[in-house]
């Protein structure tokens, strides 16, 4: 287990040294600019706009990092042959994959943590005080982190067998399709025959990112049910675990040429 932690820590260090966390500066500029602007032009909906904008930005920044770092986690190591001196030690291939996954999700967690502070700071700036319904923002942020878990696992899965470019295309396509998973399920229910079978299979195969998106609800101060929190948590963990298992199975059989 300690080897997994070492690999995760090194992955985190790589992200930090490659200045991945610099995106926080762009995020801070975006959010502070938006908060000042919203404070001046909107009346009564400042909170709604800041929560919407802030959480969407947290999600988008994280998605970009998850995809663009995730797709290179294995392929970059193979291409640069840094993997040779790692796997020639008492490190099992699954430990490498899991370590890489934990390192990237750790990076995203830290990133999201600082962004969350930014969102709450902007909220305080426009609302001048916090209210009890703001706690739901934490749930929305938790769901965003769950989205990152799934995306990291998928990016890693694709990275274990295809080129970075194709992996990016696959991961981003799945993110877009998954964001409309509820619509796809609705379409499947309305279809008939073969189309229904195909649509149902696709709807349940793609990650359901739409269920993990509660930004609109929390912006309108609507509560999130405990059932949904439990269901989404279990779903994201199970989906990520399956994707990681897939990545391990593929990677175990790969020749490092």
């Amino acid at each position: 287990m300690s080897r997994v932690v070492r690999i995760a820590a090194n992955t985190f260090r790589e992200a930090v040294r490659d200045r991945v966390l610099y995106n926080l500066i762009a995020f801070a500029l975006l959010l502070s600019g938006a908060a000042i602007l919203v404070g001046q032009i909107s009346v009564g909906i400042e909170r709604l706009v800041v929560v919407n904008l802030g959480l969407t930005a947290v999600s988008l920044f994280g998605v970009v990092i998850a995809i663009f770092i995730g797709i290179g986690l294995v392929s970059k190591e193979m291409e640069k042959r840094t993997l040779y001196t790692v796997l020639s030690r008492p490190v099992r291939r699954w430990e490498f994959i899991v370590g890489k996954f934990l390192g990237l999700t750790g990076t995203l967690f830290v990133n999201t943590f600082f962004m969350a502070i930014g969102v709450f700071a902007a909220l305080l700036y426009v609302s001048h005080k916090f209210q009890s319904s703001d706690a739901w923002i934490l749930v929305a942020l938790f769901f965003i982190v769950l989205q990152f878990l799934i995306l990291c696992a998928l990016a890693l899965l694709f990275s274990s067998f295809s080129s970075p470019l194709l992996s990016a295309v696959f991961a981003f396509s799945l993110f877009v399709i998954g964001s409309f998973a509820e619509d796809l399920r609705g379409f499947a229910r309305m279809s008939r025959g073969l189309a229904q079978g195909l649509a149902t299979t696709a709807a349940y195969l793609v990650p359901n990112f739409s269920a993990l998106n509660v930004i609109g609800q929390v912006a309108h101060e609507q509560p999130i049910s405990a059932h949904l929190i439990a269901y989404n948590t279990a779903y994201a963990l199970a989906y990520s675990a399956m994707a990681i298992c897939g990545a391990v199975l593929i990677f175990e059989r790969r020749n490092l040429k």
């Binding site: 993997l83 040779y84 796997l87 020639s88 059989r253 020749n255 490092l256 040429k257």
Partner: peptide, 8 residues
């Protein structure tokens, strides 16, 4: 690489 387990 075979001896190192890098290639199967």
């Amino acid at each position: 690489k075979l001896l190192m387990g890098l290639v199967i």
